[in-house]
Design a protein around this nucleic acid. Structure first.
Lengths: 412, 412
DNA sequence: CGCTATTTGTTCAGCGATTGAATTATTTGC
DNA sequence: GCAAATAATTCAATCGCTGAACAAATAGCG
C-alpha cells in the first residue's frame, strides 16, 4: 500500500496525463498558500499551457476549486488561487481498539470533517458485533459527510494487532481477536462507500501504522522520515521512510515492543525474554508505580499516571523513569539502525511524554554514534487519542490526491 | 541514491521514452534467457511496435546486442534474442579496507570483468597515499577494461566508516580516518572515467551498504528485501528494502553494531554500554576464544577461528556460540522491527556462518512473534571477501540499466 | 515440393499530450 | 490614459505510442 506513484509497468500515452495530474494536484496539496497556475508551472517544470490543461481536468472533476484572488504585490493580471475542493471525495477512517470505537471522515485537504468516538470495553464483545456497531457509526458519518457534499471513496480500519495482506486479523492479543476475517464480516452490511478505480474499498491495517500515517500528514507538515511509537498495552511502531510507511515483507513491521532490552530478563508472552513491552508497556508501568490494575479501567491508566507524576508521586516518577530508560535503549537501537532524526511518542505515551522524553533522549545521546553530528528530536504526537482513525481516513484521502485519474475517470 | 526510476518532477514528452527505455532494458536484464521483442511486448504491456522502436535505440546505443536465435519450439519466424551488451558502459568499484585495497570492473550484465586485490595493512598509511595506490590500480583496471571494449562511466568507493552525502568520510574508526575529503583527494589524479549524464562520477559509501547491494544483484537473484550483516572489527548492516538500499535520513543507517544487547554490560567505544560489537565483533570473538590478538594479522583471525572450530576446539566453539547468541538477540530485534524474512551473514561472518547461523536462528525463533507463520532464512553471503568492491561497481552498472537515457544521449 | 498455419518483426497513418510562441486578459504605476 | 507587467489561453508543431496491415521466416503436412 505504498503511496508513491511510480509507473510500475508500461508507460503509455495516457500515463503521461495521469502522472501530471498527480504531480499538479500534489503540488496544490503541499503548498502552504493557494498557488496560481503560473506558480504551478514554475514549481513543476511543466509549461503554463500544460498546467492550464491539467488544472481544467481537475476543476471539471471537482478535485480543486478556485479561491478568491490571493493577495499579491506588484502589477499584472491577478492570479487565481487553486485549493483542494472542500466537497468531493473523502476517506472514511475506522478504528477498533481495546476501549473505544472511532469513526472519522477526512477530506482531500486532510481536514477532519466528522468524528465519532464510542467508549466501551470491547474485549468481551464478539468481533462481528464490534464491527456491526462500527458500521452503524459509519453510516451516520456517511450521511453527515453527504450533507457537506462529501462522497466516501474508501475506508481504512485500524486494529491493534497483526493484519494479513487480505485483511485477515491474525492476532490482536489485547483485544482477544484471532483469525478474524474482517472484510468478510463487513461485506455483510450494506456498502457505505462509492467504488472508485484505484482506491481499495477497504484496507485493514495495524493501528500503529495508521497512527504514524496520521502523524505524517498532520499540520504543520513534519519530517518525512520518523519513528512513531504507540504505547498502549502493547507497544507498536510505525516506521515512515521518505514519506511512505514501511510495512515490511509481510506487512508486520514495527513490532518494537519485542525488541530485547534485557535479554535474560522477564519472560514475555511472545516467548522471548526481556522484551521492551515488559518494561515500558502500560501494564508494566502501572505495576511499577504501585497501582493495582484492577482498580483502573484501561482507558484511565495513563491519565492517572500523569496526574500522580504531576503531583510528584515518587513511585510514579520512578516507574516513568525506568520505563523511559528501557524505551530509550530500544529507540537508540532503532535510531542506530535506521538513522532517523525524529521520534514521535504517540498513543498512551503522548500524555506521559514530559517524563519519558528526557530519558529517551538521554539514552540516545549516550548510545547513538551519530547523535554528536546531528541531534535527534523526541516529541509527543500532535494528534489526539484517535490518531489511528484519523490516519486511516487520511490515507484514503491521500490516495485520491496521489492518483486522481481513477476518480476523474469515474466522475465524468 | 535510490535506484528506483520514478519520475520525480515533470513528466514531459521525452520522459515517456526514457521510462520505457528503462523498462525494456530492465526486463532484458532481469530475464533468465534472452527475450525476443515479442516476449518483451507481452511482459511490459507495450505494443510490439513500441518495443521495436525502443530496442532499436538500445541497439544503436550498444547497450544490448542480438544473440544467436534462442532455441524455441513450434512454428513461426524464429525470434532474435536480446542480451545486455558485453561491451559498452561498465562500473568501477573501489574499496579501502583495514587490510586490503580492492578494485574491480562490472559490466551491464553484472559480470565481474576485472578484479585486483592488494593486501596490506592500511592503518599506518595516510589516506592520500592509500587513495593514490588505489588510483594506480584503477588505472590498470581501466586499461584492461578498455581492451575488452568497456568504458568506465562511474566509480563507487567503499570505506568501512560513516560517509557524508558529499563523500566526506566523517569517521572510519578501524582505519583511523577522520574527516577525509575523498572526492577532493581523488580529484588530484587524472580522471579515469568518462562522464555520463545522470551517472555521478564518484560515489563514496559505507562498505556494509555496498556489500549489501552486491548481494542484492548477485546471481541467482535472491529476495528483494533482506538484512546484510558485515562482521568485521566493527559490525555494519546494509538494509535492502524492496530492491533498494535504505540509507536513512543522513545516509548513516545500518549501525547494527551498536544495538544494545546487554544494556548494563561492557562499555563500548561509542559511549554506550553492552553494544553488540562488544560481544560479536571480531576482536571480541577472538578474545573469547583465547587467541592473543597480537599473534594474528587482522586478515587471518576469522580463518584461524574457523580452523579451530572445525577441529572441535572447545574455546573457539564456546566463543562462537556466545557471539552467535548475541548476534541473534540483535537480529531478532531487527526482524521484529522491520519484518524481514532473510538475513545474510557477510564479511568475516561468512566463513563463520556454520557456527553462527544456528544460534541466530534459535534466537529468532524464540523472540520473533511472526516466525511461527513464516520462517526467517539465515544464510552466508554468496560473494567473496571483496563483496563491497563488487557491489560498488555493480551499483554503477545498475544505474545505467535503470537510467539508460543518459548514456544514450551521450554516445549518439 | 508446395501450401498453410504460425510467430516475429516492421511500416505507417492516426492520435493524444506536451511544447513554445503568440495572443488575450487584467491590473499597477506613472 | 497609456505603458509595463503578470496571468492565462489559443494554436500549430512535434514527439512518442497505438493498432492494424504487411513482410519475413520457419515447422508441419500432404
Amino acid at each position: 500500500m505504498s503511496l508513491t506513484h511510480a509507473p510500475a509497468g508500461a508507460v503509455r500515452q495516457g500515463s503521461l496525463r495521469e502522472l501530471n495530474l498527480a504531480l499538479v494536484l500534489g503540488r496544490i496539496a503541499a503548498a502552504d498558500r493557494p498557488p496560481s497556475r503560473a506558480d504551478l508551472a514554475t514549481a513543476t517544470g511543466l509549461t503554463r499551457a500544460t498546467v492550464s490543461a491539467v488544472v481544467e481536468d481537475l476543476l471539471a472533476g471537482r478535485l480543486v476549486s478556485e479561491s478568491d484572488p490571493a493577495p499579491r504585490s506588484g502589477a499584472g493580471r491577478p492570479a487565481r488561487g487553486l485549493v483542494l475542493a472542500d466537497q468531493g471525495p473523502a476517506g472514511l477512517g475506522l478504528e477498533v481498539n481495546v476501549d473505544y470505537l472511532a469513526v472519522c471522515v477526512v477530506d482531500l485537504a486532510g481536514q477532519v470533517r466528522h468524528r465519532t468516538v464510542h467508549r466501551a470495553d470491547l474485549r468481551p464483545v464478539a468481533p462481528a458485533d464490534a464491527l456491526a456497531r462500527l458500521v452503524e457509526m459509519a453510516g451516520a458519518a456517511r450521511d453527515d459527510a453527504a450533507r457537506h457534499g462529501l462522497t466516501l471513496v474508501g475506508a481504512a480500519l485500524a486494529v491493534p494487532g497483526l493484519v494479513d495482506d487480505v485483511g485477515l486479523v491474525r492476532l490482536a492479543p489485547n483485544l482477544g481477536w484471532r483469525d478474524v476475517p474482517v472484510p468478510a464480516l463487513l461485506a455483510e452490511h450494506p456498502p457505505l462507500i462509492e467504488q472508485v478505480p484505484g482506491v481499495p474499498a477497504l484496507v485493514v491495517d495495524n493501528e500503529a501504522n495508521l497512527a504514524a500515517l496520521g502523524e505524517l500528514h498532520s499540520q504543520p507538515p513534519g519530517p518525512s522520515s520518523f519513528l512513531h511509537i504507540s504505547g498502549e498495552v502493547g507497544i507498536g511502531a510505525g516506521i515512515v521512510l521518505d514519506g511512505a510507511l514501511f510495512r515490511g515483507v509481510r506487512g508486520w513491521s514495527g513490532e518494537i515492543g519485542h525488541l530485547p532490552v534485557h535479554p535474560e530478563g522477564r519472560p514475555c508472552r511472545c516467548g522471548g525474554q526481556g522484551c521492551l513491552e515488559q518494561y515500558a508497556g502500560q501494564e508494566a508501568i502501572v505495576a511499577a508505580a504501585g497501582l493495582a490494575r484492577a482498580e483502573l479501567p484501561a482507558d484511565t491508566a495513563t491519565a492517572r499516571l500523569a496526574e500522580l507524576a504531576e503531583a510528584g508521586d515518587a513511585d510514579a516518577l520512578r516507574a516513568l523513569h525506568d520505563a523511559g530508560t528501557a524505551l530509550g535503549v530500544a529507540v537508540a537501537g532503532v535510531v542506530n539502525l535506521l538513522d532517523l532524526d525524529t521520534v514521535v511518542l504517540g498513543g498512551g505515551y503522548a500524555a506521559l511524554a514530559p517524563w519519558l522524553c528526557p530519558r529517551v533522549l538521554a539514552e540516545i545521546d549516550a548510545r547513538v554514534l551519530t547523535a554528536a553530528w546531528s541531534p535527534v528530536t523526541v516529541r509527543p504526537s500532535t494528534l489526539g487519542a484517535e490518531a489511528a482513525a484519523v490516519g486511516a481516513a487520511g490515507s484514503v484521502a491521500r490516495r485520491i490526491v496521489a492518483q486522481p485519474a481513477g476518480w476523474l475517470a469515474r466522475s465524468d
